[in-house]
């Protein structure tokens, strides 16, 4: 059974993430302990609310360094919602600029849409070769709740032997809904709140990425 740590840095619906992972067969611990987070088979970084608050919470438990060191050793990390956003270079919310973990180039900024937050069930366009969305129909919907997002994918695919797989969704405009990049994966939506569809995504992550 895969040992998963949900990183507790004071943000996110930790209980839901814990229950949803347990439902698909993981051995889950919710903790801020750095050793446990480092040693787990898979690390989940949740996050809701403001980018700046999440980044400062994450820093207070040494999160960026834990993520960096895990990835250096090829150990899987899954970011969810703002836990995905903080993996990018920069967050800009209400004029406030916050430096992120810098795992991917790009900026998290306000979406251009008539109604925000983008709240509810939406479809995604996953690329061929996707692991996370394997076995799911293209019209499957996932639960999103966010105002900010990554509107441009800035990584040059030519520079990578295996370029990351980017999944898009649309609310007013296109934005990044998920990224699969070797050991590092992330979703803007909440798989833990997306019913059976979300459970499939978590199961795919557990089985084929965490292994």
């Amino acid at each position: 059974m895969s040992r998963i740590v949900v990183l507790d840095y004071g943000s996110g619906n930790l209980r839901s993430a814990e229950r949803a992972l347990r439902r698909v067969g993981a051995d889950v611990t919710v903790t801020a302990d750095a050793d446990a987070a480092m040693e787990a088979d898979g690390l989940v970084v949740p996050g809701v609310g403001a980018f700046a608050a999440c980044m400062s919470g994450l820093a207070s438990v040494d999160g960026p360094r834990i993520i960096e060191r895990r990835l250096a050793g090829g150990r899987p990390v899954l970011g969810i919602c703002v836990g995905m956003q903080v993996l990018f270079d920069l967050g800009v919310e209400w004029g406030e600029r916050t430096v992120g973990c810098g795992q991917w180039p790009g900026t998290v900024e306000r979406l251009k849409a008539d109604v925000l937050p983008h709240m509810g069930w939406n479809t995604v366009a996953a690329p061929s070769g996707t692991t996370l969305f394997h076995g799911l129909d293209p019209d499957t919907r996932f639960y999103f709740v966010h105002t900010f997002g990554v509107r441009r994918w800035e990584l040059d695919p030519a520079e990578h032997l295996r370029p990351p797989l980017v999944t898009w969704a649309n609310h007013g405009e296109d934005f990044v809904a998920a990224v699969e990049n070797g050991a590092l994966a992330a979703t803007q939506f909440h798989p833990e709140k997306s019913g059976d569809a979300g459970a499939t995504v978590l199961q795919n992550w557990l089985r084929d990425i965490v292994g």
């Binding site: 983008h118 509810g120 649309n170």
Partner: peptide, 8 residues
């Protein structure tokens, strides 16, 4: 496709 109307 866009975000679905929610029934609550």
């Amino acid at each position: 496709m866009s975000v679905a109307v929610r029934v609550i």
